[in-house]
Design a protein around this nucleic acid. Structure first.
Lengths: 158, 158
DNA sequence: ATTTATAATGAATAACATTCACATGTTCTG
DNA sequence: CAGAACATGTGAATGTTATTCATTATAAAT
């Protein structure tokens, strides 16, 4: 479905998405119009979902990452909890995970005080939330949304 | 440090980063040259870290997300484990977290079989790895790298 | 061999990026 | 308070890029 030419285009864009189309074409050794058409097609097919700017969290007072597992009892909740969590500004990821009726939240806040207030005011008080367990990130070695595009020896793409 | 004008530019770019500069200028009601200069400055200051394309994981055989906590004993490791994990294709995030000498990995693979092989071959076999606990994601409600830029009532930016 | 579908090229033109001279406004300082 | 220093905006000019489209090439299907 995705051929090597498109794959190479995606690799280039994954490296730096806000470069001119002509530049992609140059790196590909192809006509700009051909590259443009392919990118459009990838967008239409939903292979490319969008383009994001990556901001430095330190500059926006979001130095601290925490992972919070939230045990819930949805029967006691007054509203669906997944969408509720998803709507919170401090939360970047909401996953419903295997285990004991559990959500896993990735949270970004300024500092410990902020984290405390966030949990108290926005999580623990919610009807249906039974208890939480918070894991603080001390150091991040890698944090990316990139997907591996080149196939390693064992893997195949479809 | 970051004024409202830049903030609005970042909001626009956070929504869709690969749009022409002129379009940003139109939405801002400013001259394109002024917008360009501001974006350049934000890049120079490291406030903008880069631009990424967001790919659809389903289309690349990465339907399954798992979070893996890895208990380690770095003394028994033959190499630093953080960088080792970070180098693995399947891993999107590597955090060293509070708790019992623990790494938290966010892993993206095709399916259960893939996850099993990944853990067996690339994690559990590593010297220094004591044991792991894997949590599978059943459903994802939200997954973004966006930072909240508008200030809510209580918060402030610096 | 011919049809059909898919995708590349290259030329033409519209749109955009980029630079720069100049204007405006703010802050700092003597 | 004047005016220097700085930051940031505008608008025009120019070079670059995006986009469209007619045409050609390639590959698979009948």
């Amino acid at each position: 479905m995705i051929d090597d030419v498109s794959l190479k285009i995606l690799e280039i864009l994954q490296e730096k998405a806000r470069i001119p189309n002509v530049e992609v074409a140059r790196q590909m050794d192809m006509a700009p119009s051909a590259v443009l058409e392919r990118i459009r097609k990838l967008e239409r097919q939903g292979i490319i979902d969008g383009y994001e700017v990556r901001l430095n969290p330190d500059q926006f007072n979001r130095r601290l990452i925490a992972f919070v597992t939230v045990n819930v009892c949805e029967q006691k909740a007054k509203q669906p909890l997944g969408p509720y969590f998803a709507a919170l500004r401090e939360i970047q990821e909401v996953h419903y995970v295997s285990g004991k009726d559990c959500y896993l939240l990735k949270v970004r806040v300024a500092d410990n005080g902020d984290l405390y207030r966030f949990l108290q005011e926005k999580i623990i008080l919610m009807a249906g939330v039974i208890h939480t367990q918070t894991t603080q990130v001390l150091h991040t070695f890698k944090e990316t949304a990139k997907l591996p595009l080149t196939n390693s020896t064992v893997e195949q793409r479809n």
